[in-house]
Design a protein around this nucleic acid. Structure first.
Lengths: 122, 122
DNA sequence: TATTGTTATACTCTATAACTATA
DNA sequence: TATAGTTATAGAGTATAACAATA
């Protein structure tokens, strides 16, 4: 049941990202770029392999949503910075997404009550 | 916040599926095979393109988790049936997954209360 | 030597378009 | 003509392994 809700939120998230012209994974990265982040830090935050982030960031850069710059403190590292276009995409996504409550709209009152009790009592 | 919980459940789901040696998408299909299903019905249930299900089922069949048979009522259609091995994988997944409550364990009591209120009142 | 990141490669999921076979 | 399914192709996400540059 909790799983069904998670699936529904996930679908809502995917659809919203698509409406903005980005993917779910790309949005997750954009969300973490309030400050420029090193690539390895992004990998830690997303709990995935650095090579995956390299690929992801390459697509974000290709689409003009981020810029890469050398870390002034470590010539090995790259800092990823969100662009103006990236900020617009992120903002648009958040507006469309709301707080995710829309994903609960398909649940009945009974289902919502049961779910709330489960979470509160978990 | 709701989104964070959904992400956490999603991760738990992915990790559990991986532990059983299948993918999240494959488990979702196995869950819908209490009765044999036609491929086009699986596509509807998963809300995805039939060609995606064709590919997915090919991998499930390769791994011995399902069998395909011609629908006796329609020579165009194929019925997908879960195998004994598939049932064991599904069972193991459900046992490891529990009811998904484990995904809530990282939330504080305050967070859980806030989330429960949001769901109940949504 | 250890860390940061990239490249090469491979696999899964997904979609679109063109196709075959059957209804 | 419409429906069920497949194949070809492509793009995204992910991982492993081997590698280069820097610390």
């Amino acid at each position: 049941m909790l799983l069904a809700v998670a699936e529904r939120i996930q679908s809502h998230l995917d659809a919203t990202a698509r409406a903005v012209g980005v993917t779910h994974a790309q949005v997750k990265v954009l969300m973490q770029l309030d400050q420029p982040q090193r690539l390895c830090d992004l990998a830690s935050l997303q709990d995935c392999d650095p090579s995956s982030i390299t690929a992801l960031v390459q697509r974000l850069e290709r689409d003009g949503l981020v810029q890469r710059e050398v870390d002034p403190n470590d010539a090995r590292a790259r800092r990823i910075r969100i662009s103006a276009k990236g900020k617009r995409s992120r903002q648009k996504f958040l507006e469309l997404m709301g707080d995710g409550r829309a994903a609960l709209d398909t649940l009945s009152a009974d289902e919502r009550a049961a779910l709330a009790a489960m979470i509160a009592g978990g």
